[in-house]
Design a protein around this nucleic acid. Structure first.
Length: 574
RNA sequence: CGGAGCGUAGCUCAGCCUGGCUAGAGCACUUGCUUUGGGAGCAAGACGUCGCAGGUUCAAAUCCUGUCGCUCCGACCA
C-alpha cells in the first residue's frame, strides 16, 4: 500500500474524548473514528489489524476442530422467551419491530440460535461432539459504554458453542477451547492468564476468563504466586479462618447504643465491639421481597456471590422506607435475630460464631452475646464475602495478591440448561433421548485489539506485535521524487517484500522526515526501513525495529534481513 | 438510572465570572516562495447558525429555564 492512497488520519493532539492510553492511540494513529457514543467506524488501518486478529482466531478455532458458521443478527424474541433470558437479560437486549409490529432481538450472543440449530440438526450421539463458532457483530445495550472499543454498544465477538453427549465429554470440548484461547492470545502478543470465573445465574459449574493485566481493566483478579491459583474477585475464595467460637456466652442481651449506626462507631468506646465480632445486616429486595444478608462486620458483601446464592441477578439494595417497613428500624440498628418472615443468607465465615453483636431492629439498640446457631434462623449459608489482598491462599496459604485486568475471553461450561429448554436432544447408544451437554466460549475481538494497544505502547505510540500489526513493514524514503535513487530503491524493496508475502506500506508522502518518522512510530509498524541520500551514499539502508536500534544493511541484503527479523519478532503460542 | 464535569472552526483550546464594535489563537486544510534525517518558516486564503429551543435585555457565546449530546465515577459485560 502507498501511504498517499490510503486514509491514515494521524492526530498530533489527543482528542478530548479519550481517557485511557489505548483509546487515545486508536484515535491518534487513525485506526478508528467515533460515530457517536459507543459506536465506532474502523478506518483502513484499524480494520487490517482487526482482520489479522480474526484470522488468528479462525486458525486456532479450526485447529481445535470447531466449525465456522454465521448466524443471523436478528433473532426472534420467542426463543429468548423459551430460554428464559427474555426477562433475565432484558436490560442488555436491543429490540426492534418490523412493519408487522413483530419484535426482534439484535443478537447480543447466540446460545438460543445455535441451540435451535442443534435441535434441528443433531439427532444422534454419532454426530457428537460438535462445536460451532462465528465471528460477528454483537449488540448490547450497555448502561455505560466507555473507553472506546473496550465497552461498546456494538462490538465484534467470536462466539463458539459445543455440544457433547456427557458432562465428561463436555469437559474435553471445554479443555480444547481453553487451550485454543491460550494460543490465540499468545499469538496476539498479549500477556494473558486464565482465571476462575463466576458462573452467575446460568448456574453452569465451570468457567474461566482470560485476562490481560492492565490498570485500566474493569476486573479485579485475585491470584497466588505460590500455587498459581487465580480467580476473578467475583468468584475468588481464600483460606481466611472462620470466626472462632468462644465460650458459650450467657443469654442474648439487648443494650442501648444511642446514635450508633455504623460498624466503626460501635467498635469504639464505650462499646468497643471489634468489627470482627459484629454482624453486618444488609437488606436487599429480590423477587419483590426483602431478604437479609449477613456478613461479618469487617467483611464486604460480594454481590456477584449473592446473585449465585439467591439464583438471580435481579435484586437491589432495599430503600430506606422498605427497610423500616420490613424490620421496624433504620440501617445501623438492623439484625436477623428472631427474624422468620424473610429469608436470611449468611456468609460462611459466620458459621458457628457466637459472642457476636448485631442490631436489635430497634433504633438505638443492639444485641450482644448473639450465637448464630442459637439465635438466628439462617435460610442459606454461602460464600458471600469479598476476598481482600493479603489473605491466605486457600490452597497453599501464601498471601493472595490482587491485580486489575481486562477480560478478553470467557469459556463456560453450560450444561443442559439451554438444550433442555430449546429441545436439543440426541438419541444415545442405549436408545434413550438425552439433552446435549453444552459449552459456550466468547472472545471480544474488538476489545482484544484495544487490549493489545493498552499493553503494548510507549511515549511515541503503539508498539504492534508483528502478528497483528496493520502493516509489518513501513518503508520511509526521505525523498519521493519519482526518478530519485532513493525512491527507486524504495519502490524496489516494496515490490520485493510484497512478493515475499510481507505486508508493506510505502510512505510516499512528500513530507519532511520528522513527520514521517513520528507517524511511523505513532502507528507502530514493527519494522521501518529508512532510505535517504546520506545512508544511500554509504551504500546502506536503515532497518529500524520499532523498539530497537537502527541496523544499517546493504540494499541487496535488506529483504532477507527483514524476513529474519519478522520471524524473530513474531509472537508464538507457548 | 444515581453522582460529577463539558459542549465555541476538522482537532486542541481561549473568550463566559463582570452582557457591548466584524467571535479569537495554535494545529490541520488551499495557493505561492523558501526549507528538507525526528511533527519547518514566511505570505495570502478558506473554514463558525458559539449543541438546540425558549426567556431576560436597547444588546446574549456570555445571564436564566428547558432540552439534546459527550466524558468521567457506580451497577452490567466479551
Amino acid at each position: 500500500m502507498k501511504w498517499t492512497k490510503s486514509l491514515i488520519p494521524t492526530l498530533k493532539e489527543t482528542p478530548a474524548e479519550a481517557e485511557i492510553v489505548s483509546h487515545k492511540l486508536l484515535l491518534r494513529a487513525g485506526l478508528i473514528r467515533k460515530l457517536t457514543g459507543g459506536l465506532y467506524t474502523f478506518l483502513p488501518l484499524g480494520l487490517r489489524t482487526l482482520h489479522k486478529i480474526e484470522q488468528i482466531i479462525r486458525e486456532e478455532m479450526n485447529r481445535a476442530g470447531a466449525l465456522e458458521v454465521l448466524m443471523p443478527t436478528f433473532q426472534p424474541s420467542e426463543i429468548w422467551q423459551q430460554s428464559g433470558r427474555y426477562e433475565t437479560a432484558a436490560d442488555v437486549l436491543y429490540k426492534v419491530r418490523d412493519r408487522a409490529k413483530k419484535e426482534w432481538i439484535l443478537s447480543p450472543t447466540a446460545e438460543e440460535v445455535i441451540t435451535s440449530l442443534a435441535a434441528g440438526e443433531i439427532n444422534s450421539y454419532r454426530q457428537l461432539p460438535i462445536n460451532f463458532y462465528q465471528v460477528s457483530i454483537k449488540f448490547r445495550d450497555e448502561i455505560r459504554p466507555r473507553f472506546g472499543l473496550m465497552r461498546a454498544k456494538e462490538f465484534i465477538m467470536k462466539d463458539a458453542y459445543s455440544f457433547d453427549v456427557s458432562d465428561e465429554a463436555a469437559m474435553g470440548s471445554y479443555r480444547k477451547m481453553y487451550d485454543a484461547y491460550k494460543r490465540i492470545f499468545d499469538r496476539c502478543g498479549l500477556k494473558n492468564f486464565p482465571v476462575e470465573a463466576d458462573t452467575g445465574v446460568i448456574g453452569g459449574n465451570y468457567s474461566h476468563e482470560f485476562m490481560v493485566p492492565a490498570e485500566t481493566g474493569e476486573n479485579d483478579v485475585v491470584f497466588c504466586e505460590g500455587c498459581g491459583y487465580a480467580a476473578n474477585v467475583e468468584k475468588a475464595a481464600s483460606g481466611i479462618p472462620k470466626t472462632a467460637p468462644r465460650e458459650i456466652g450467657p443469654a442474648i442481651e439487648k443494650f442501648a447504643t444511642p446514635g450508633v449506626v455504623t460498624i466503626e462507631a460501635l467498635s469504639k468506646a464505650p462499646y468497643s465491639v471489634p468489627a470482627n465480632r459484629q454482624i453486618k445486616t444488609l437488606i436487599y429486595i429480590a423477587d419483590s421481597k426483602p431478604i437479609l444478608v449477613l456478613v461479618r462486620g469487617d467483611d464486604q458483601l460480594n454481590e456477584a456471590k449473592l446473585a449465585s446464592a439467591i439464583g438471580t441477578t435481579i435484586f437491589r439494595p432495599a430503600e430506606a422506607q422498605e427497610i423500616s417497613d420490613a424490620l421496624g428500624a433504620h440501617p445501623g440498628s438492623l439484625g436477623a435475630v428472631g427474624v422468620t418472615k424473610f429469608s436470611v443468607y449468611a456468609d460462611e465465615r459466620l458459621r458457628g460464631a457466637n459472642d457476636m453483636t448485631t442490631g436489635a431492629n430497634e433504633d438505638g439498640f443492639h444485641f450482644r452475646n448473639v450465637s448464630i446457631d442459637r439465635d438466628i434462623q439462617v435460610t442459606k449459608w454461602a460464600d458471600l464475602r469479598t476476598v481482600t489482598k493479603g489473605e491466605p491462599c486457600a490452597k497453599c496459604g501464601k498471601p493472595l495478591k490482587i491485580q486489575r485486568a481486562i477480560e478478553v475471553g470467557h469459556v463456560f461450561k453450560l450444561g443442559t440448561n439451554y438444550s433442555e429448554k430449546l429441545n436439543a436432544m440426541f438419541l444415545a447408544e442405549d436408545g434413550q433421548r438425552y439433552p446435549c451437554v453444552m459449552g459456550c466460549y466468547g472472545i471480544g475481538v474488538t476489545r482484544t485489539l484495544q487490549a493489545v494497544i493498552e499493553q503494548s505502547n510507549d511515549k511515541d505510540g503503539i508498539v504492534w506485535p508483528v502478528s497483528v500489526a496493520p502493516y509489518t513493514v513501513c518503508i520511509t524514503p526521505l525523498s519521493v521524487a519519482p526518478d530519485s535513487a532513493v525512491m527507486k530503491l524504495a519502490e524496489q524493496l516494496y515490490s520485493d517484500l510484497t512478493a515475499r508475502g510481507v505486508d508493506v506500506i510505502l510512505d510516499d508522502r512528500d513530507e519532511r522526515p520528522g513527520v514521517k518518522f513520528k507517524d511511523a512510530d505513532l502507528v507502530g509498524f514493527p519494522i521501518r526501513i529508512g532510505i535517504g541520500e546520506k545512508s544511500l551514499a554509504k551504500g546502506e539502508v536503515e532497518i529500524k525495529p520499532r523498539t530497537g536500534a537502527v541496523q544499517p544493511v546493504k540494499p541487496e541484503e535488506a529483504v532477507e534481513r527483514v524476513l529474519s527479523l519478522i520471524a524473530e519478532l513474531t509472537p508464538r503460542a507457548s
